[in-house]
């Protein structure tokens, strides 16, 4: 009887350790439910581009990425777009891309806007604010700098100058 008692004890204690450890561990290493921040992986998306192609975030794996959210109704967004265009041209050929996601606007204003601006980096169209929500956006513009290993280096809220972008892209490419 002594031996079987010992076995029961050990089995139960191991069970408690596994189940209890799992429950406690879950609280310590909980998935951050808030918006993605530094060190997190940006939420996946699959969006239609202005070029008529479907763009998945996973298509850009291994590249340094700038994910920029913009809208025609947001003056600082509009102002910074030519800056991004210049950066895009500067780093062409590197392992680098810019994805500019429009904030779920109607077709016509976006099309008109793009025609005027002459931008050639990928412009994507969010639908019903879904991607924007997944990224936990609170104000516009917001720009995510993603390292080659797929984690976020920085989240920048507000309009950016070319200098600011350039400095960050240089750091991104070093990773």
């Amino acid at each position: 009887m002594g031996a079987s008692r010992k076995t029961v004890q050990i089995v139960i204690l191991i069970g408690v350790l596994l189940i209890g450890g799992y429950a406690i561990g879950k609280t310590l290493f909980a998935d951050d439910q808030g918006p993605p921040g530094v060190g997190d992986r940006p939420p996946d998306f699959s969006l239609l581009g202005m070029d008529g192609e479907v763009h998945n975030l996973s298509d850009y794996e291994g590249k340094a990425l700038v994910i920029n959210f913009w809208g025609t109704f947001c003056p600082p967004c509009v102002e910074e777009m030519p800056e991004f265009q210049r950066q895009y041209e500067k780093w062409r050929g590197e392992d680098f891309d810019i994805l500019a996601i429009n904030l779920s606007e109607a077709d016509l204003p976006v099309a008109n806007f793009v025609r005027q601006m002459d931008l050639d980096y990928p412009l994507l169209r969010d639908v019903n604010r879904r991607t924007e929500r997944n990224y936990g956006l609170r104000s516009y513009p917001t720009t995510f700098f993603v390292k080659k290993d797929g984690t976020i280096m920085e989240v920048f809220v507000g309009g950016m100058t070319e200098e600011q972008i350039n400095e960050r892209v240089e750091r991104l490419l070093e990773t």
Partner: peptide, 19 residues
């Protein structure tokens, strides 16, 4: 063109304030 919340921008051109 279409403007969701019409306004005249700083440059005198029509623009929209929101979506």
């Amino acid at each position: 063109d279409q403007f969701m919340e019409f306004a005249i921008g700083e440059n005198g051109k029509p623009t929209t304030l929101s979506r």
